[in-house]
């Protein structure tokens, strides 16, 4: 490419800048982090900014291969949830028993038993306050699921290790259990993909994730407190987990920002108008924000694309991806390639998946533009990898995504690669196995 064209359509990046943060760097909170009162600081679950709250989790940090394998499990769960189906957990009324996979009944022939499970947890955490007086809890934030839950004393069956003190309902003056006859109890089914149970008169939820992690406990309500301005949401419905097991990374539970009536977004609709925004920290050693309400972004140049809603996967945020470009060249991809299975955005998925034909086109164009660099072995699901160990700077084609409403985003260099180490730098996209996924 000519110099001017190169500047427009290629990133020229120092290889060292692609490397992920390490603990040695410590935590450097982003100066752009939103400081508004209705804003929560977003931290990576395993990064140095989490060390003050999740120190005990360091030894359980996953490897890169484990991160990618867990990501595949999450995406498998999303694929199954988006497909039309009818499944139910036959009973979660006994909270002393885990909702094991073999208890998920199939009603649609040929579907895998895991199709009733919801997606695995994401990588980013925020701290909220719960109860009166409020107790601070670090929860995984997730736009791809709906149900908010935290571990609760007395942990009748099991609680995994978390850094924050476990929430104790008996110490909150505003805590209330929800009865089985409440309409909110029936809403649990769509929020958790599992039919709620009943213990005495109390509604019992059960939620199982794609990696077999789960939480079972009481549906409850209490006061939720958000941000430095201590915005309060009275009567916030959540799960008070008495039996919790899985890879939640030392967090106290999960906050669901999906589209279901029980999600935080829906429950806070009156206060924040069904608008929220986030920025994921650009390095694990930095911080981002999760902000409720309008005006939460630090950037003035927001490009919008319509949100789509479909009958399948009603909890998810579907968007209208129409095309891809590499190095300024639009790829030849039929528009129906993207509409066949649909496209959704999810804060908890690490690697963007593309339909097979779209991924093939992206891979071919990217390989062509990167042909001067030696290839490297595949890393789990990532099959387009390069050895950049002999370079101090590299020229990388910009990747653009075109959305409905004439919106386009061009990914920064950090959004193009997943870097295991400098000798194995991989294109951070993967192909779906089926065109209808």
């Amino acid at each position: 490419p000519q110099p001017l064209e190169q500047e427009h359509h290629f990133h020229i990046v120092e290889v060292s800048s692609l490397l992920p943060a390490t603990d040695v760097e410590g935590c450097n909170p982003s100066p752009k982090g939103n400081k508004k009162g209705n804003s929560l600081e977003v931290r990576h679950k395993h990064g140095p900014c989490s060390s003050s709250t999740l120190e005990s989790d360091k030894e359980s940090r996953p490897s890169h291969v484990e991160i990618l394998e867990n990501d595949e499990k999450r995406v498998d769960s999303i694929r199954e949830r988006v497909k039309p189906k009818s499944v139910e957990v036959d009973s979660v009324t006994d909270h002393k028993k885990a909702p094991k996979k073999d208890r998920v009944k199939q009603k649609a022939v040929g579907l895998p038993v895991k199709s009733g499970s919801t997606i695995g947890s994401g990588n980013f955490i925020v701290t909220i306050g719960l109860g009166t007086p409020k107790k601070d809890l670090s929860l995984i934030f997730d736009t791809g699921s709906d149900f908010t839950w935290t571990q609760c004393e007395p942990c009748k069956r099991s609680c995994y290790k978390q850094k924050d003190p476990v929430f104790n309902p008996s110490e909150s003056s505003t805590y209330t259990n929800i009865t089985c006859t409440s309409t909110l109890c029936s809403e649990v089914r769509s929020a958790t993909s599992a039919k709620p149970g009943c213990a005495g008169s109390t509604c019992v939820y059960g939620i199982q994730y794609g990696d077999s992690s789960f939480s079972v406990g009481f549906l409850a309500k209490d006061t939720l407190t958000l941000g430095s301005s201590y915005d309060t949401i009275p009567n916030f419905y959540f799960g008070c987990g008495e039996n919790n097991q899985g890879l939640f990374g030392g967090s106290a539970g999960l906050i669901g920002l999906g589209r279901n009536q029980l999600s935080v977004m829906s429950q806070c609709a009156t206060k924040y108008g069904q608008v929220f925004s986030y920025c994921l920290p650009s390095k694990a050693s930095s911080t981002g924000h999760l902000t409720f309400g309008k005006g939460g972004t630090s950037s003035k140049s927001i490009t919008y694309t319509p949100l789509l809603s479909g009958s399948a996967g009603a909890s998810f945020y579907f968007i209208d991806l129409q095309g891809l470009s590499v190095g300024g060249q639009k790829l030849s991809i039929q528009p129906t390639v993207f509409t066949q299975g649909g496209v959704l955005i999810d804060s908890g998925t690490v690697i963007t998946r593309l339909p097979p034909d779209a991924y093939s086109a992206l891979q071919a164009a990217f390989n062509k533009a990167m042909s001067k660099y030696p290839k490297a072995p595949a890393l789990s699901i990532l099959d387009t990898c390069f050895d950049l160990s002999k370079y101090t700077t590299v020229t990388v084609p910009k990747i653009g995504l075109q959305f409905g409403g004439k919106a386009e985003i061009v990914l920064p260099a950090a959004g193009i690669f997943y870097v295991k180490d400098i000798s194995q730098v991989c294109l951070a996209f993967a192909g779906n196995g089926d065109a209808s996924d």
Partner: peptide, 30 residues
Amino acid sequence: VGILGNVQQLTFDVVYDVAGSKLGFGPGGC
């Protein structure tokens, strides 16, 4: 050990305007 997160969304502000039925991206978010 360095951990990477959800790389495509890094450095963007992502705005979910559910009431307005639109989703926004803003560069240089954090």
